[in-house]
Amino acid sequence: MNDKSLLMLMRHAPYAGARATEALEAALVGAVFDLPTSLLFRDDGVWQLLPNQQADALGIRTHSNLISALPQYDITNLYVCSESLAARHLHQDQLTQGVTLVNPAEQQALIAQHSIVFND
């Protein structure tokens, strides 16, 4: 459909308001439009990648279920900021599978590679 590509920066914690969910919804619509779509999780957004979340207790959608569904929308390029993980004492092993660790220089390159960059 086009030669553009979308990078979504996911910077908010999964249950700190609706920001994370709404950002993910926008990414899904991008993919539905056949826009090659990648997600970069950084800052508190890295918490979105922890598996086994249970938001039923809050009566809201479990964010990690949406994350697991991303491959069904052909969103397979998931990146996570190494420094954001380290600052929160998180390790890649604890995260959902299939996420690529990227350092700040690699993130710079990612942002430069994509024609459209959304912030959440």
Binding site: K4, L6, E25, V29, G30, I116, F118
Partner: peptide, 23 residues
């Protein structure tokens, strides 16, 4: 409108500028 309009707007534009909110 639907979110599709956001994607469409991003595709037709040369630049997409986001004005974020801290909360």
């Amino acid at each position: 409108v639907g979110l599709g309009q956001l994607i469409e707007a991003s595709i037709v534009a040369d630049r997409v500028i986001t004005f974020g909110a801290s909360t």
